[in-house]
Design a binder for these strands. Sequence first.
DNA 1: TCATGAACCGACCAGCGTGGTCAATGGAAG
DNA 2: CTTCCATTGACCACGCTGGTCGGTTCATGA
Lengths: 205, 205
Amino acid sequence: MNELFQNIDAEKRDRIINSALEEFSKNRFDKASTNTIVKNANISKGLLFHYFKSKKELYHKLEKFSIQIVTDAIAENLDWEVADFFERMKQIVLIKGEVTFHYPYIYDFLAILIEERTLAKLREGVEERSNDLIDQVYTHNIDFSKFREDVDFKIVMEIIKWTFEKYVERLVKERIKFDKEFNFKEIEQELEQYIKVLKKACYKE
Amino acid sequence: MNELFQNIDAEKRDRIINSALEEFSKNRFDKASTNTIVKNANISKGLLFHYFKSKKELYHKLEKFSIQIVTDAIAENLDWEVADFFERMKQIVLIKGEVTFHYPYIYDFLAILIEERTLAKLREGVEERSNDLIDQVYTHNIDFSKFREDVDFKIVMEIIKWTFEKYVERLVKERIKFDKEFNFKEIEQELEQYIKVLKKACYKE
DNA sequence: TCATGAACCGACCAGCGTGGTCAATGGAAG
DNA sequence: CTTCCATTGACCACGCTGGTCGGTTCATGA
């Protein structure tokens, strides 16, 4: 992530990253407090500014880091050969779970980044080309012929994506609130149940 | 809402309420700025503190007001005779739309209130009895016998509720971002499409 | 043994934004 | 004319801000 970070104790490094991700997720840049970050990370003010020369640099480094982490997780764990859409969704959710396990606020932070950039593009009048990787993840090599044709495909896709988004949201919230460990076996079983219901609505008989 | 508000111009009153709801939705109490509120409401600092004796009182009055508005909207517009679950959901979404049209940030604000109270209860060890009215809205007089029995009911309900929550979320975001008017005829038609898909998954053939 | 330099601390700073005040103004009603 | 209240915005004391810096601790390696 940062040359200054290479020799640091990994546990402390993650404490700093997570504390910063949390603060920047809960407050926009201006209102996010470096004091709060160091307090929650249990380090001194000096140390934070020893690693990052300013609040702005910390933010930018966090951007890069977060994108890198998610990209890597996908590269390492997504099986692009799988053609069944729901199987793909299951993989995506499990990857999200794995990443969230280490960095609970990383997706909140990324969501803010994406929104900011979308707004910036809108203001400049640039048309929105949504992130290529995200598109790919949901579509590349997927066999869409299994979907029924008597309903609007766009709507079917929304229902599916929304369901899994909300499911992950709940997972993350439970993790943060109750410090609940992830039981990936259990999660996979639960996912199967959602998929069973959704398939009835979305796939041909 | 407030005895001081009784003689005020309704348009100005709503400007103040909406500005405050927005600020308190985007920032927790401490970080919410009364300066920002008056700036966006286009009134002077003095006027805000003429109507509300402190930031805290403003917050409390907003609480009462928001709950009142939503309760009233339900009381006036929900048809408790309707027994079909999806018909009920449609009504709820349309009511939310109507309320959001006037107060775009009211549900965000209420969501924070509910979360705060849930957390407070958790800390005190009180078991969570979720809001009676909300329970009623989703269950009272509903004919649940139409639902299929070969899938987990809890999961089916989640998918339905999540879908409509996300749908409203999108509606509100579009309204705020593009100042898009609501076309209730159009919304109703769209809802029908979602319902058509969901029924396949949830109702007996 | 000592030297080097990085990791780390926390008191400290100038400045800005805070919630809240208040004397003054405007304008409507009687 | 008086009364009254909505409304203004300059003003204030103060707390928190991002960032600095002189200092200590500690590991390494010669």
